[in-house]
């Protein structure tokens, strides 16, 4: 038990003094925080506060101005580290079938054929798309496409999963469904997840930890543990209280 506790405390992502400027515009201002291994961290903040800039710095789409991002103690590099990224909107490849899309990340990493087939089958089943494996993205609905993206990300068995408002464009019912799916997958795989959203309810529903960012130039306002047991009830008084606390943090500066 004690060993497990210690393992859980292992730091997966260490962000220290991360600063990003676009020209003279300071977007990220000296951000430092740690993400524990196996955590599900929800990052909330006002719209346009640089949440996406933060993720893009993490995945080296942008070079950071100063500071560093360490993954298991090394500078993060998407070519070497298994980082998966799910973002808002459809990012499935229209020329591949559902099955080929799920296998895409495995093909990129040259995973042996048998293992690839097993992983693909498994995650197709988990997101409930086995029946649609031979369909092309054009034949699917928005929520099914997002499930393809989720299966594609999880199939690579990432050490770190980054999600950038993945459910922003979905209607509320589908969002609830996919949020539950994410929690289930996260519990099953123990992947470290950083989930960015502007939806406070979503953050409180999903997060083990919730990190609130300030307006530009962005700094960390507060990071809190979310002690609510799962499955969470969005109408429960404790849930509402926590949600209001986060809302207040965003409202006040």
């Amino acid at each position: 038990m004690e060993i497990r506790e210690k393992e859980n405390r292992q730091v997966k992502v260490k962000v220290s003094h991360l600063t990003k400027k676009f020209g003279d515009l300071l977007v990220l201002n000296d951000i430092s925080f740690d993400v524990e291994k196996g955590d599900l961290l929800c990052v909330v903040g006002p719209t346009g506060c640089g949440k996406t800039t933060f993720l893009n710095s993490l995945t080296k789409i942008y070079d950071v101005t100063s500071g560093e991002i360490l993954l298991d103690g090394h500078p993060a590099d998407p070519k070497k580290d298994h980082i998966a990224y799910i973002f808002q909107g459809n990012s499935t490849m229209p020329w591949l079938t559902v099955e080929q899309n799920v296998a895409f990340g495995l093909d990129i990493r040259h995973v042996p054929k048998r293992e690839k087939q097993e992983l693909t089958d498994r995650y197709l089943e988990i997101v409930g798309l086995t029946k649609y494996r031979r369909y092309y993205p054009k034949q699917l609905s928005a929520s099914m496409l997002q499930r393809v993206s989720i299966a594609r990300a999880f199939a690579t068995e990432p050490e770190l999963l980054l999600m950038d408002e993945p459910y922003g464009q979905l209607d509320i019912e589908l969002r609830f469904k996919l949020e539950d799916e994410l929690v289930r997958l996260w519990e099953m795989t123990g992947t470290t997840v950083i989930f960015i959203t502007h939806n406070i309810e979503e953050a409180v529903y999903l997060g083990e930890h919730i990190m609130v960012l300030t307006n530009k130039p962005t700094t960390v306002k507060e990071t809190m543990r979310n002690p609510l047991p799962r499955p969470r009830d969005i109408a429960a008084p404790e849930f509402v209280r926590l949600r209001e606390r986060v809302t207040d943090l965003i409202r006040w500066w």
């Binding site: 789409i61 070519k79 998966a84 973002f87 990012s91 895409f104 990340g105 990129i108 993206s149 690579t156």
Partner: peptide, 16 residues
């Protein structure tokens, strides 16, 4: 560009 971004995130190199 979203396709390129998605593939790059999954670890694709230039050739891929």
């Amino acid at each position: 560009p979203d396709y390129l971004r998605a593939a790059r995130m999954l670890g694709a190199g230039k050739r891929q």
